[in-house]
Amino acid sequence: MDKNLLEHSLALVDLPDDGLTVRFYEILFDRHPEVRPMFARGIRQQAGMLRTAVIAVVDHVDDAEWLQSTLGTLGRRHAELGVTEPMYGAVAECMIAAMSEIGGPRWTTEMTAAWSEALTAVASLMLAAYPTADDASGAA
């Protein structure tokens, strides 16, 4: 992954007051209203946590051990909340849409490709930590 491009593009769209992630949730709920009930807490608080997570992932994009450990823990939490595999695609689609909208004409196809790759990797690491049928049955 191109850490420099991810950092540069995030700096371009990272608005004050969690504006990027607030806009992301607006787009997510508009395009995928079925996920709205999963968010009991205020979206501002959720947007702040998501922004922190996005920045942390970009900061550690070259640290495979950190990514696997941190995103694995986050993946297990999301599994407990009922987040399904297709929801990760919706999240990536809506995050890139928010970034592209905020970035306007300065947002490039290279940025879209870099974020698509990064968000796919994040989803893969999170999903890899989901419990399997063997985990539920207690099999080794």
Score class of each variant (00 low, 15 high):
residue 43 I to W: 09
residue 2 D to P: 05
residue 33 P to I: 14
residue 46 Q to T: 12
residue 41 R to L: 12
residue 57 V to C: 10
residue 5 L to N: 06
residue 86 P to G: 02
residue 78 H to S: 10
residue 84 T to P: 00
residue 74 L to S: 04
residue 119 L to N: 12
residue 85 E to Q: 11
residue 51 R to I: 06
residue 115 W to Q: 06
residue 25 Y to R: 02
residue 1 M to Y: 00
residue 128 A to L: 09
residue 133 A to S: 14
residue 140 A to Q: 14
residue 37 P to D: 10
residue 114 A to H: 03
residue 112 T to I: 06
residue 60 H to K: 12
residue 84 T to H: 12
residue 115 W to F: 05
residue 2 D to R: 05
residue 82 G to K: 09
residue 80 E to V: 08
residue 134 D to R: 13
residue 101 E to F: 06
residue 138 G to F: 08
residue 31 R to H: 14
residue 121 A to V: 02
residue 84 T to W: 06
residue 42 G to V: 07
residue 50 L to S: 01
residue 103 G to H: 01
residue 22 V to E: 10
residue 111 M to H: 11
residue 120 T to R: 09
residue 50 L to E: 02
residue 61 V to K: 03
residue 102 I to G: 07
residue 86 P to R: 03
residue 58 V to E: 06
residue 128 A to N: 15
residue 42 G to D: 15
residue 114 A to R: 03
residue 95 M to A: 13
residue 68 Q to C: 07
residue 20 L to Q: 00
residue 47 A to Y: 13
residue 98 A to Y: 07
residue 82 G to S: 13
residue 8 H to N: 07
residue 27 I to E: 06
residue 1 M to S: 02
residue 78 H to M: 04
residue 65 E to G: 04
residue 69 S to V: 13
residue 96 I to C: 11
residue 68 Q to K: 14
residue 60 H to S: 10
residue 36 R to W: 00
residue 108 T to D: 09
residue 4 N to P: 00
residue 11 A to Q: 09
residue 6 L to P: 00
residue 46 Q to I: 08
residue 123 A to Y: 06
residue 107 W to V: 01
residue 11 A to V: 03
residue 63 D to G: 05
residue 57 V to R: 08
residue 12 L to A: 02
residue 92 A to H: 10
residue 129 A to H: 08
residue 18 D to F: 07
residue 93 E to S: 12
residue 116 S to D: 12
residue 67 L to T: 05
residue 113 A to P: 01
residue 73 T to G: 13
residue 103 G to W: 01
residue 32 H to A: 15
residue 108 T to M: 11
residue 31 R to C: 11
residue 36 R to P: 00
residue 9 S to D: 04
residue 37 P to T: 05
residue 22 V to I: 14
residue 135 D to V: 01
residue 63 D to Y: 09
residue 128 A to Q: 14
residue 14 D to E: 11
residue 56 A to R: 01
residue 46 Q to M: 11
residue 29 F to K: 03
residue 57 V to L: 09
residue 116 S to T: 12
residue 99 M to C: 14
residue 51 R to S: 14
residue 25 Y to M: 02
residue 6 L to N: 01
residue 123 A to S: 15
residue 74 L to W: 03
residue 46 Q to Y: 02
residue 124 S to H: 15
residue 114 A to Q: 08
